[in-house]
Design a protein around this nucleic acid. Structure first.
Lengths: 191, 191
DNA sequence: AACCTTTCTTAAGGTACCTTAAGATTTAAT
DNA sequence: ATTAAATCTTAAGGTACCTTAAGAAAGGTT
């Protein structure tokens, strides 16, 4: 299955696309291949693409004033990985996006996507859903961070994202959970 | 100025509305008057309205398993106060919305809003912006919670929302910041 | 196989923030 | 004005999580 096929299959899980429409959609995306550790989006760049992971594993993270990394999101096959913040506000990104494994990403520029909304309206609905879900899962995470201990969050993470836990180094899980690798290690020992 | 006038004025800050359109928009909203401490949305309710604060001050909060309250958002005149999570997912709300002062709220039901999108298209763009901004500010808050101390967050809150700080009890600010009232009190003493 | 790099663990000491409990102060209700 | 209710402060003792530092294990590269 080509990356484009995979993308079309993904779209068709949520919206109906005729073969003609699928053809149009496919042509709007360009392919990006990344080696492990390669960076797709640097801080300061404008994030003006929507990006679909066709293969591999990536993370988006930002660095605070003390050069400490905080992982915002992991992404694997069939996920979208973006900096929605920068995309929506048209401001330079404060986050990085980096490949954790060799990866293949399909991306579409904002301008092209807006054109696509006109030629294939179902796509607009698709992305509205995406934004809504992004909001919902962000809120879930914020609430979790506020009201649960690191241990509880870790257990939740393991059950919810077992597939991811097995693919990324443990110190990145720690960063996603908002604790130090040392502390996560000590939590694991307890169990 | 009537509540509806206030709402129209608010819309016109972001989008253009003819007088006819303004009339249509105004008729879609219904008015809700709340006494201090009165609850507008209970846990378990479906949150299927968008709500505009025309007067007063409210908060949305949820209660964790230990019956501890966590404030998600404050709102004052000219803000929107919703449970976007429940609104978007059509699931019962896990949050309350409560009046902190006597308040006047204008609300529109989701179904009616979707009709309004058709009759007055500019309104759809208005709400798309709203959702985007909601996402952006939620992300800012999540990142802040992860990378800053309570003291830093408090200082930021004071500068950004001085008007709110002066209207709500201090223990609610503490809840918004994610600390106990006692700890916030001790931070204030230090300054 | 040997070496270098990356990742994970252990442990000691420290800090941010919490819990409990009580009293002080402010605001609201009669 | 008096009392009750709501809010804020103080203080002592506790816990979750951090920092630093070092070594152990695992993975990659020649």
């Amino acid at each position: 299955m080509t990356p484009i096929d995979r993308l079309i299959t993904h779209f068709r899980k949520s919206i109906a696309l005729t073969d003609d429409e699928a053809e149009i959609v496919g042509q709007c995306f360009s392919i990006v291949k990344l080696k492990k550790k390669e960076i797709l989006l640097f801080v300061g760049d404008h994030s003006s693409h929507m990006r679909f992971i066709s293969e591999g594993c990536l993370r988006s993270y930002y660095m605070d004033e003390n050069a400490k990394e905080h992982i915002i999101q992991f992404g694997i096959e069939d996920w979208w990985i973006n900096n929605l913040y920068s995309y929506l506000t048209n401001t330079p990104s404060k986050q990085f996006i980096q490949a954790i494994e060799n990866s293949v990403v399909l991306q579409i520029h904002k301008d092209k996507l807006n054109e696509l909304y006109n030629s294939v309206p179902a796509v607009e609905r698709f992305f509205r859903f995406k934004f809504e879900k992004a909001y919902v899962s962000l809120q879930e995470r914020t609430i979790n961070t506020m009201s649960k201990t690191a241990e509880e969050r870790y257990i939740e993470f393991r059950t919810k994202y077992r597939n991811i836990e097995q693919r990324v180094p443990q110190y990145m899980v720690a960063s996603y959970l908002g604790v130090t690798p040392e502390f996560l290690s000590s939590l694991r020992k307890k169990q």
